[in-house]
Nucleic acid binder design. Sequence first.
DNA 1: ATTGGTTCCAAACAACTGTTTGAATGCTAG
DNA 2: CTAGCATTCAAACAGTTGTTTGGAACCAAT
Lengths: 209, 209
Amino acid sequence: MTDSTRQRILDTAEQLFADQGFHATTLRQITREAQVNLAAVNYHHGSKDALILAVFQRRLDELNSERLARLQSVLDASDPPDLEKVLGAFIYPALLLSTQSAGDGGRFMRLLMRAWAENATQLHGTIARQYSHVMRAFADAVSRALGTSPDNLRQQLDFLIGALTYTMAETTDGQVEETARALVRFGCAGLRDSALAQPRQTSLKENIA
Amino acid sequence: MTDSTRQRILDTAEQLFADQGFHATTLRQITREAQVNLAAVNYHHGSKDALILAVFQRRLDELNSERLARLQSVLDASDPPDLEKVLGAFIYPALLLSTQSAGDGGRFMRLLMRAWAENATQLHGTIARQYSHVMRAFADAVSRALGTSPDNLRQQLDFLIGALTYTMAETTDGQVEETARALVRFGCAGLRDSALAQPRQTSLKENIA
DNA sequence: ATTGGTTCCAAACAACTGTTTGAATGCTAG
DNA sequence: CTAGCATTCAAACAGTTGTTTGGAACCAAT
């Protein structure tokens, strides 16, 4: 099985999609740059839309499993979990992926934003489905670290996701460590302060009643 | 001067661009929905790219002048300025615009993200230029509110912008007030805490030496 | 060596894109 | 009224898009 063609298409497509957008990137451009025949995309991936989806599956699987793995080891370390480390498990893999996935910074994140911006029919739903799993786990961990109800956290977590997403797109290789630390600090402060404004969960009411 | 055609094109284009993206939206779709002739776009706006730019100019002018006006009245109120109110001047008009610019929520912000995602040649530069003016003013105000150097603030402000942008896209009409307050609180906590981690500006060194 | 299936390739396909054209219309000033 | 200008319109333009096609090339198994 010569996957080299299939793989090379995937790599080239990811790069071009990130640089120019999905609609603006043509199959001819992809196949030319990947040095494969025009028909190869339809042969190996079925259609252009399927190719877009394939590009995402690859990276999202990476990112999500890495996040969950780190979260698990944070949860194993202490109970209740340490908020800084929970956020770190969420933020660090993302920033890392955004710089390692391709040469210069932020390529994959630009891709994610595109996917969310261009309402590529099923694509948005697919990504959201992939994220809901991870999001629930992290929301739960954060709520336990803070001692608040998970419901009230969704908004603050969205703030953090927005900050992370926006940041990923402009973070270059050398800054990952420093940026991650700054963002974790920023997010922890915001989450802790916001938790004070909400009715604290007594951890008895909810769990027993 | 019958601007009704020109205006109707602008309105319809904004809506369709937000819903489907720039590239995916065709002139035929715009003109059909706006009930004008196909050639009307090129006649009134010159080209499709010029139309995209025009759609942005209209909203960005609104947003930026509203932000600056509010900032000014915050600066006039006290010296040093109140951080919560500075952030409010930045956040509130944005959330307001995102819900009022069109029927349902987040339409214009989806547009902004698209503009940033789809590297529409000159568009990105134009928007950045429009923002740099406002950004500098707010960075300055925040730095004075915190007593830190403006240079170290850029990153935290980017966090806030990301959180705001992401939030705008998912905020509906009724939640504006509450969301804005939550985001201001979140941002203030993050900014204040981050300021502690950095060498505080003694306000003498910098201003005198 | 020949079979059978996978992979590649050049060429063509139909559909759609933004833009231009030139005539027809509407409206207003002289 | 009418000359002149701004606006609208149907039609056609040249170019690009994703996809399909039928055959060539390849490669392992019989």
